[in-house]
C-alpha cells in the first residue's frame, strides 16, 4: 500500500512550490489514475515518489507498506518495490540493453538479500517478456534506448517493469507519443502485470489510455493537490467537460 500524506514539495533551489499538501492512498491491487492539466504537478509527484534528487521535501510523508520512502536513496526505493516508467526514457550509449537489464535485476536482488539470477534463467525471462511486448531480440543487443523509436522506448520501460516485478508501478504519461497499436501493446503489457499485491499509479492527460488500462480510482490533480477522487467514470466526465470545473474550484 502506498500512502502519501500532506506532501509539500518545492524545486530544490526553493524558487517554486509544486506540491501543496497532496494526500493519496493506493491500496494493494489497485490501479489509480491521476489526471490533470499541464503544470499541475503530476510528473513531479512521480519523480518525488521515485526519489529524484532535484526536489526539496518541505513537509509530509510517503510510505510504502509502512516504510518511509523519503528516507531512502532512489536505488533503495527501487529495491523496496518502486518502479517508474519514464515519460522520456534515457539513452545509455555502449551499454547493451541486455547488460543493463541484468545489472538492474541483480542489483535489486542483492539489495533485498536474495541470490543473483542464473544466466539461463535470466535469458529465459527476458526472452519471454520481450516476445510478449513484440520486442525483437536484436533490440536487446543494442545500446539501451539508443536509436529506439518513441514506441520502442515505452515498450522497453514496460519490459523492465515486468522483469523487476515492483510492488508499485508508476506510469508517467506512458501514452504520450504512442500510436494506437503501440498503445494497445503497452496496455496489454501493463494489464498482464496486474495482480492482488501490485498496484499502479497511471499518470495521463487523456482518457484514451484508460480505455485500455481500466483504473479502479481516478484522481484529479490541480495546483499540486488532489482535488477530486472518483471511479473510472470520472475520467469520462473529464473527457467530456475538461478540467475547468476543478481548476477554478481550487482557484476560488
Amino acid at each position: 500500500m502506498l500512502e502519501i500524506r500532506n506532501l509539500h514539495v518545492a524545486i530544490e533551489d526553493g524558487s517554486k512550490k509544486i506540491l501543496n499538501g497532496l494526500d493519496l492512498t493506493i491500496h494493494n491491487g489497485e490501479v489509480a489514475a491521476i489526471m490533470g492539466p499541464n503544470g499541475s504537478g503530476k510528473s513531479t509527484l512521480s519523480y518525488v515518489i521515485a526519489g529524484k534528487p532535484d526536489y526539496e521535501i518541505l513537509d509530509g510523508e510517503i510510505l510504502l507498506d509502512g516504510e518511509n520512502l523519503l528516507e531512502m536513496e532512489a536505488d533503495a526505493r527501487a529495491a523496496a518495490g518502486v518502479f517508474l516508467a519514464f515519460q522520456y526514457p534515457l539513452e545509455i550509449p555502449g551499454v547493451a540493453t541486455m547488460t543493463f537489464l541484468k545489472a538492474a535485476m541483480n542489483a535489486q536482488s542483492r539489495a533485498r538479500g536474495e541470490g543473483e539470477l542464473k544466466t539461463p534463467d535470466f535469458m529465459r525471462r527476458v526472452k519471454l517478456g520481450a516476445e510478449k511486448l513484440g520486442i525483437p531480440q536484436e533490440m536487446l543487443r543494442r545500446g539501451l534506448n539508443v536509436g529506439f523509436s518513441g514506441g520502442e522506448k515505452k515498450r522497453m520501460e514496460i519490459l523492465q517493469m515486468a522483469l523487476l516485478e515492483p510492488s508499485i508501478g508508476i506510469l508517467d504519461e506512458t501514452d504520450s507519443g504512442l500510436d494506437i497499436d503501440a498503445l494497445k501493446i503497452v496496455s496489454e503489457g501493463v494489464n498482464a502485470l496486474r495482480s492482488a499485491d501490485r498496484s499502479f499509479l497511471v499518470i495521463t492527460h487523456y482518457q484514451r489510455l484508460l480505455n485500455y488500462i481500466v483504473p479502479d480510482t481516478v484522481h484529479v490533480m490541480s495546483k499540486g493537490r488532489i482535488v477530486k477522487t472518483g471511479g473510472k467514470e470520472l475520467a469520462l466526465e473529464l473527457e467530456a467537460n475538461g478540467y475547468a470545473d476543478y481548476v477554478s474550484d481550487v482557484a476560488a
Binding site: 526519489g51 536513496e73 532512489a74 526505493r77 519514464f86 551499454v95 547488460t99 543493463f100 542489483a107
Partner: peptide, 17 residues
C-alpha cells in the same frame, strides 16, 4: 537517476555508463 531508479547504486551506475 534513471539508472538508480532501476536499482543501481551511484558507483554501479557510473561504472556502467
Amino acid at each position: 537517476f534513471y539508472c538508480r531508479q532501476r536499482g543501481l547504486s551511484a558507483e554501479e551506475a557510473t561504472a556502467l555508463i
